[in-house]
Write a protein that binds this DNA or RNA. Sequence first.
DNA 1: AGCCTATCTGGGAGCGCTCCCAGGTGTGGC
DNA 2: GCCACACCTGGGAGCGCTCCCAGATAGGCT
Lengths: 342, 342
Amino acid sequence: MGPRAGDEERPTLEDVAAFAGVSRSTASRALNDDAYVSAAAREKVLTAARDLGYSPNQAARSLVTRRTGAVAVVLSEPEDLLLDHYRTAVMKAGYRELADVGRQMVLIFSDTREDLSKTVRFLEGGHVDGALVFAPHRADPLPKALRLLRIPVVFGGQAAGIRRGVHVVDFDNEGGARLAVEHLVASGRRRIATVAGPQDQSAPIDRLAGWRKTLLNAGLDPADLAEEADFTLSGGANAMSALLSRHPDLDAVFVASDMMAVGALRTLDAAGRRIPEDVAVVSFDDNATLAPAMDPPLTSVHQDPREQVHAMVETLMQLLADQNLKPRQQILPVSLTVRASS
Amino acid sequence: MGPRAGDEERPTLEDVAAFAGVSRSTASRALNDDAYVSAAAREKVLTAARDLGYSPNQAARSLVTRRTGAVAVVLSEPEDLLLDHYRTAVMKAGYRELADVGRQMVLIFSDTREDLSKTVRFLEGGHVDGALVFAPHRADPLPKALRLLRIPVVFGGQAAGIRRGVHVVDFDNEGGARLAVEHLVASGRRRIATVAGPQDQSAPIDRLAGWRKTLLNAGLDPADLAEEADFTLSGGANAMSALLSRHPDLDAVFVASDMMAVGALRTLDAAGRRIPEDVAVVSFDDNATLAPAMDPPLTSVHQDPREQVHAMVETLMQLLADQNLKPRQQILPVSLTVRASS
DNA sequence: AGCCTATCTGGGAGCGCTCCCAGGTGTGGC
DNA sequence: GCCACACCTGGGAGCGCTCCCAGATAGGCT
């Protein structure tokens, strides 16, 4: 039971207080910079803490404050989770934005059936103060399961199956599609096809709807000019082939993601179409490593995941301060970055 | 101070015990399935816990056990962190492997100077029981800073500037390069170039060394046949151009990553070289979404990040059980997946 | 019968922190 | 001179849990 070598006990607040010659209470106040601590006492405590290499015991702290200082970022997808550009950006942004408000990110991947209950149990278990949830699939049971949760939740993108009573920060997908199509119409295109994303997710649904409505508004016929794909490069290439064989005379295409646009570009190139002379291409995402790097560089609807996450964190912080905050749907604007492909 | 609506207090262990008609101690034993609890008591406690919707307070638990149940996964890179395929795979694998041993992953991105001290402070602060650290850059100060840490650390890939006394799980990068080059030599190639990765990281250094040694062993001259690039697609394309202009007669190339190989393929195609007839291509990583999807599909050195993370978690668990475990360097074997590009 | 062990239970202490409250000291106003 | 009020400090309680220990009961051995 004797002290082993290297078995240095971690100093406690009590140790710091003793070392500084003050009480535990004063030490606590100094370290958390509460009011009513004399400058001299504060100085002594901070020095003592530094000298002893003190770092507060989080467990003890959160036992009494009932705050963990951690926030979960949940990436849900009933099937195998794809860590695409968007999710990757969300993770990085989540880490940064939460760090900026002094919170730690705890990442949760929820991509199997059994994960659902594990995820709920974790969020329920007091490990985190709140959660940012990304659950793009409409059939995903997670959002509904989270309704009974005691901790505040903010959704990134629409919460499947829930229309109200939750906090949501989404992009203006329909508006983005409208920008894209209006741009094509304005430059004289008349047969504007679309490669749509998976129609079991709300973002691609909205993009498709935006394309359709804008065409109708412009007096153009969308019939048979849409093809669904799965957000992958090859999916985009195949969808483009299908469109091309149905409508060899199409003169523009709105593709619902950059990655699919790369595939579409490849198909158009193989079919001998010049871009943008024969066919103009506009895509969605404006992925910084993809869109400008293509040949030709892609015109793309710009959305900034960091901005979304920032708004989500902001909302969550308000929620943490005031549990009764009225549920809010924030729709972030998007813009069109015009490059050589259109 | 009266109870608000929806202000349901979380049940404590005490509540569960009272409900089950046993003592707090017995309830605790039943829930943690300790020995010496009668079947009847256990049953009553578990039922009570379920009925009350009890979930243990983690803070209270870890205050006394001095275990958090969480493990950090640190992705370090002094410059802007690139979430490439490998790191992404590491994150997913880390999440799964840690979940399998009942631990929670806490992800840490450390990619600026000031992050260093924040990272150290976090790891020091008792938030996690241990850490899995990925710090590929040789100049990265993090590994050395972690030496004084009180918590167990396992490195994924070599720990910059440290040769011994740390736990490391690495791939056999040099052996992988040897496999690749021996395969090319065996198929009759004689002018075998390489597109090397950044030489400030140990993995690409080892791959380059393996290429060089194997050529020399085969009686071939590596002089001037290596070109360094930065692991990006365009970097690979440019390096390939340089090699091609220096050695128009090269008949094979070993590329240090799949992504760079995609660029190299593009350059070779543009230069009118047929693959594999004129130039054979072998790359490294065997990225499941990239290597088989290329035209032609890439022969690639296969390494499995999940396997690496699994070994790291295993080592960490042993370390958690026995702090004095002797430091170990584990080198995981790699294999060659032969496809049409060679 | 007596004793020892294995099995099971409950109470108490205490992990390290924050928060509340009582109390002490100084300063200004009447 | 006294009170009011800011400012500052220390002690005590208690967050919810696990672990140790004392005690109770039942069964198997000498």
